[in-house]
């Protein structure tokens, strides 16, 4: 019965196959960012719906092309326009939420998340396109195989690098000399009130990030990347602060001489090994990644 239906409506069946792989790809990618956003059902539904549309757009183009309807390709440009809107939507809502956070994400992190959301819709289109094209050209099983391969490619693409790739993360002692707070050898800030010093002494965790090479050094120096580190650490460990407590703010400072980044966090849960792991897993922001050594090598080769 089903086989008969599939043979009778070949175009539709192929489009459905492509669409479901597109949606599957979007679903796969949605799982990865539970930590950032969206954590609530309605945000997820919005993205699944867009994923479905992306999948449908990607797969509908193929049968149209097969029937010599070449203008169908303009359809895809419509999709691109649509998904640029997704990026704006994400940016706006994240910026609005950011003002209510105790530790903010910062504009660089928000931009990174927004770009990722746009990009993931294109990956969903790509998965749908690949599946439908192969199913049309080489049959069902080939189409399903191509879909699975594209899911694999997509999940590889989605996995960005994290801080552990560019820096060694370890705990460092917090030292207070009068009002001055140090993490390792790095001067962090001046805390005037004895109450705040007690909190830092008993609650604070100092973390030292040692960059593995010159590229890492420039990347962790980026202010947006630093804010992302503080934000993620605060999300994963909780944060011991309130509005109107400016002295109890998590902080990251550079050791200019060595390029090390010292981080002071005040978590709810005082577990240094968890803090180290949380910071190791902070994603590298696309806007923060710098590769000066590659750029210098290239320009040297180019003449």
């Amino acid at each position: 019965m089903i086989v008969h239906w599939i043979h009778a409506h070949r175009d539709l069946a192929v489009v459905l196959l492509g669409t479901s792989f597109g949606l599957g790809a979007r679903l796969l990618m949605l799982r990865a960012d539970y930590r950032q956003y969206p954590a609530y059902p309605h945000g997820m539904i919005a993205h699944l719906a867009l994923g479905l549309i992306a999948g449908a757009l990607g797969s509908v183009a193929v049968p149209a092309l097969y029937h010599n309807n070449y203008t169908a390709i303009t359809f895809l440009s419509l999709a691109a326009q649509q998904f640029r809107e997704v990026r704006n939507m994400e940016r706006n809502s994240l910026e609005a939420i950011d003002r209510t956070e105790l530790v903010s994400r910062g504009p660089a992190y928000i931009e990174g998340v927004a770009v990722v959301f746009e990009g993931r819709n294109y990956l969903a289109i790509f998965a749908a396109l690949a599946t439908t094209l192969t199913a049309f050209a080489a049959g069902w099983w080939a189409g399903i195989a191509a879909g699975l391969v594209s899911l694999g490619v997509v999940s590889r693409f989605m996995r960005g690098k994290s801080v552990s790739h560019i820096a060694k993360v370890e705990e460092a002692p917090i030292r207070l000399e009068g009002p001055n707070v140090y993490v390792g050898e790095v001067y962090m800030m001046n805390v005037g009130l004895e109450e705040d010093r007690d909190v830092i002494r008993s609650r604070g965790i100092g973390i030292l990030l040692t960059p593995k090479n010159g590229n890492g050094r420039v990347t962790i120096a980026n202010m947006g990347q630093r804010q992302a580190i503080l934000y993620d650490a605060s999300v994963r460990l909780g944060v011991y602060r309130d509005d109107g407590e400016p002295a109890l703010v998590p902080l990251a400072k550079l050791n200019l001489e060595t390029g090390q980044l010292a981080v002071l966090v005040l978590p709810r849960e005082r577990d240094a090994s968890k803090a180290v792991r949380a910071i190791e897993n902070v994603p590298l922001l696309e806007g923060a990644i710098r590769l000066p050594t590659v750029a210098n090598r290239r320009s040297a080769e180019g003449g």
């Binding site: 009002p179 805390v191 005037g192």
Partner: peptide
């Protein structure tokens, strides 16, 4: 002095530094 600094920190939402 410390007590006043503490109060001002909370009132003004600004950090007290020594």
């Amino acid at each position: 002095m410390k007590k006043t600094a503490f109060l001002l920190e909370k009132l003004l939402d600004a950090a007290a530094h020594e």
